[in-house]
Design a protein around this nucleic acid. Structure first.
Length: 790
RNA sequence: GGGCCUAUAGUCGAAUGGUAAGACGUCUGCUUGACGUGCAGAAAACUCGGGGUUCGAUUCCUCGUGGGCCCACCA
């Protein structure tokens, strides 16, 4: 029995049915071709957002489609657990704790987030095989990550060196760039006097407190004002002498055209320092206090700036101050300015690998194809190696020990992985016998996620499973992380296996708020998936996803689309109820095809065309066109016209004949079954509900529509002639309805007579015109199409 | 500052080298032998601006302007 009302409770019923029936279980020994999906592990924030809903719907469509196409679909789902946001939340809740205890609390917190998100995924009807669930915080995942790092270390692709990092002096912590926000603020541009060969040269700076760390003064090589000073000595207001150096990135128009280079005022300083081979000066400690600054030691930046400006003013070395709008980086949590600090970090060698990465990327099919350009452009801009270490607690420990004396790094042994060096027994340097220093840093989260195709394929130890599932058939992901997740994954997997990691990539864009702006808490325009599922059902949300499928393109959320989707589900449900009633007790038989009427042939021909078209669109990930086409076909051809044409045959077989009734039943059966199947990937719950009518009958022996086979377009059912005739029939009926509408008559009003002029004979549909149009007598004439009532 | 994407009725959006679907909204009518979450009608777009290619462009090219995403070292 088809349900009376379709909502999330019906959906929950089927979700349970699928889980209990192990509907999505992947069989490792399946002989059918394998389709593996390297699904994105969401960060475990505890909430699925609309972006997740969109992209996860995408690959769920693919997984369901491929299953019905006869693939053995390997669809694992993981969780990206480790990261600073979790540490912040846990610290807020429990305060600071020793590392081991803190990590446990983080794990606990993350588990509760996963439970919530998993529930949301189930509610959306996503169909991963949860037996293959992975978590980046697990021992197993750590082991594989550490293994990969040691492998890369052995190939000189991972190394240790000194490098400046973003640092929040307020939180006393290193930050990733993604942890930073930009903030515009008003500041002063201070013009200071430097001395060069007895002359005063003015230099404009916003950070005079860094004067003690000044290691050079730069100017643009094309700047005639300063060209003559190249290589000369220049003396700072603090009486330190440095060189004047030409640098193409100095803007002539800014300030005086002279730039003071400090280690480390901002990133420009760091770039200059590396470019000109200058030795760094530690200017600030971890808590943001100046060091190596003489009388200003121990002061915080703001305070030091005030003091030093006072001093320079008194010495008449401060010429003037101009107000300046400046964009600075702040910590996204505490909103305090961040600094750059020099520290020892781990790196992955990526700078010279661009060509190899791009070559591997080009071997993959990118959908849409222009998205590969993001990766190509990015790889050209790679300036430095990738800093892979983070000074955090909740992350994958770096499996290394350092000998400070010999300055040599030692990796953990493969057979002891996973390791957490600081908690382990002391080790000694094989060379100098001194105690090795365990690495306390953890990995950048992209280190974790960039081997997801390897992890899901059980690399490195399960070579058989690896062969079956790697490279991944599909990597679905957001277009905004092509430069990170896709780039790093292609790089790491290529370095570790020598084989490009994906066959195809499917890119999706962002979901914007209804006003076309990015959803954000501060704008208060966030749309919560849970509320949508409550109000519209998961299948409606999934249709919205499909309809938003202009690939790799941002689209505002549309309440119109989702409301339409809900109405469509209602239409599907009600039409199915009618069909259910109409085919009660009917078993489909091929012989019933002998008595097909013109209208039957028409809708069967259309059904097959739609099946063929939908198949092609699924292959090309064109969910948008496909969903729209299905909606239009089912609603406006099947329901609006065909169902009306068969009612009299179903209800009055004593007048129109038993054979005619069976032909109609055959057609209803065939068309609705095909529709339910084609829509199954998009609206899995509704399709399953409808599939009850067919389950166990004829070829439909699968226990779920999702385990049934994809409909094959039957060429023998194609009939262009029937389509032409019925197109005219539909038009004629529309005109008859129009006549009734203009004359304010009910649609079921009986008409005496109608004259129809048509280019082809409509004799074969005379019965439908009479019965559906409620006309007593119809007169045909050959010629240009027209309908006259009366 | 750089790269990429984008611009079609009130709104959202298809399509096309020969003046343009559909949906929502609006307006009018119709109660139903599945559905008023419905059915039938109606009004509503010189396809962002300039230039070019072409017999002809909304469609191709170019510049501009607006919007979006990503990236970046203005002290």
């Amino acid at each position: 029995m088809i349900c009376d009302k379709f909502d999330k409770n019906v959906e929950a019923k089927w979700q349970k049915y699928w889980t209990d029936g192990k509907t999505y279980d992947f069989d490792e020994n399946d002989k059918r071709p394998i389709y593996s999906i390297d699904t994105p592990p969401p960060f475990t924030s505890g909430d699925l957002h609309m972006g997740h809903v969109l992209s996860y719907s995408y690959f769920d469509f693919v997984a369901r489609y491929k299953r019905m196409r006869g693939f053995s679909v390997y669809y694992p789902q993981g969780w990206d657990c480790q990261g600073f946001p979790t540490e912040v939340k846990v610290e807020q809740k429990y305060g600071r704790k020793p590392p081991e205890e803190f990590r446990k609390l983080c794990v606990e917190w993350t588990e509760s987030c996963i439970a919530k998100m998993k529930q949301q995924m189930t509610t959306m009807g996503f169909s991963p095989d949860w037996r293959y669930e992975y978590k980046t915080m697990s021992d197993d995942y750590h082991r594989r990550v550490q293994y990969s790092l040691i492998k890369m270390f052995e190939h000189n692709l991972v190394y240790n060196a000194e490098h400046p990092v973003f640092w929040c002096p307020n939180c006393n912590s290193a930050l990733a760039k993604t942890d930073t926000d930009e903030l515009e603020r008003d500041t002063q541009l201070n013009f200071l006097i430097f001395k060069c060969e007895g002359k005063d040269l003015q230099i404009a700076t916003t950070r005079p407190e860094y004067l003690h760390a000044c290691v050079a003064v730069l100017f643009n090589p094309t700047d005639a004002r300063y060209k003559k000073y190249e290589g000369k000595d220049i003396t700072t207001p603090l009486s330190k002498t440095v060189k004047l150096i030409a640098d193409k990135d100095v803007e002539k128009e800014f300030g005086t055209g002279l730039m003071m280079l400090c280690t480390f005022g901002d990133k420009a300083d760091v770039v200059g320092m590396y470019r000109h081979n200058l030795s760094p000066i530690r200017a600030m400690d971890e808590r943001g206090r100046l060091v190596n600054a003489g009388e200003f030691d121990g002061l915080k930046a703001e305070e030091a700036r005030k003091k030093i400006l006072e001093k320079l003013k008194a010495e008449k070395l401060l010429v003037k101050q101009e107000p300046l709008k400046q964009v600075i980086k702040v910590h996204d949590r505490c909103k305090k300015p961040i600094e750059l600090l020099l520290s020892r970090q781990w790196f992955a060698k990526i700078k010279d690998k661009s060509d190899e990465i791009v070559a591997a990327a080009k071997k993959m099919r990118w959908v849409p194809d222009f998205a590969i350009q993001y990766l190509i452009d990015w790889s050209k801009f790679v300036e430095w190696d990738w800093v892979i270490s983070r000074q955090r607690v909740f992350g994958t420990p770096l499996p290394f020990w350092m000998c400070k004396k010999c300055n040599i790094a030692y990796p953990a042994r493969y057979n002891e992985l996973p390791v957490n060096p600081p908690t382990m027994e002391k080790r000694e340097c094989p060379k100098c016998k001194s105690t090795l220093e365990p690495e306390t840093s953890t990995c950048d989260c992209w280190i974790d996620s960039s081997i997801s195709p390897l992890v899901i394929s059980r690399w490195p130890e399960d070579t058989e499973f690896f062969k079956k599932t790697y490279p991944s058939s599909l990597r679905p992901q957001g277009v905004e992380i092509v430069r990170t997740w896709a780039f790093y994954t292609i790089y790491r997997c290529l370095m570790l296996t020598g084989v490009p990691c994906f066959k195809e990539l499917l890119l999706n864009g962002n979901v914007l708020a209804t006003d076309g702006k990015k959803m954000s808490k501060s704008l208060g325009n966030i749309i919560a998936p849970d509320k949508l599922i409550d109000d519209y059902s998961a299948d409606a949300v999934r249709q919205w996803s499909a309809l938003s499928g202009a690939m790799a393109k941002d689209r505002p959320f549309s309440y119109q689309d989702i409301a339409y989707a809900k109405s469509f589900l209602n239409k599907l449900l009600n039409a199915s109820k009618l069909v259910e009633k109409s085919i009660e007790g009917y078993e489909p038989k091929e012989e019933d095809r002998k008595h097909l009427r013109e209208t039957d042939k028409w809708i069967l021909s259309r059904t097959n065309a739609i099946v063929a078209s939908a198949t092609e669109k699924f292959e090309n990930f064109e969910f948008h066109f496909l969903t729209k086409e299905m909606q239009d076909f089912f609603w406006h051809e099947f329901c609006d016209f065909y169902l009306e044409y068969v009612k009299h045959r179903i209800y009055q077989p004593e007048i129109y004949g038993e054979e005619s009734k069976r032909a109609a039943q055959y057609t209803l059966y065939y068309a609705l079954l095909s529709t339910a199947k084609v829509l199954a990937p998009i609206t899995p719950h509704m399709s399953e509900e409808i599939y009850q009518l067919f389950k166990g009958k004829g070829k439909e022996q699968a226990k779920s529509v999702h385990l049934s086979s994809w409909p094959v377009a039957d060429k023998s059912l194609e009939s262009k002639k029937s389509e032409e005739i019925c197109k005219l029939l539909n038009d004629a009926l529309a005109l008859i309805r129009q006549h009734k509408a203009t004359n304010k008559m009910p649609l079921n009003a009986q008409l005496k007579s109608v004259h129809i002029c048509a280019p082809v004979s409509l004799e074969s549909v005379l019965e439908e015109i009479k019965a559906t149009g409620k006309v007593d007598s119809v007169k045909f004439k050959e010629g240009e199409f027209s309908v006259v009532v009366g």
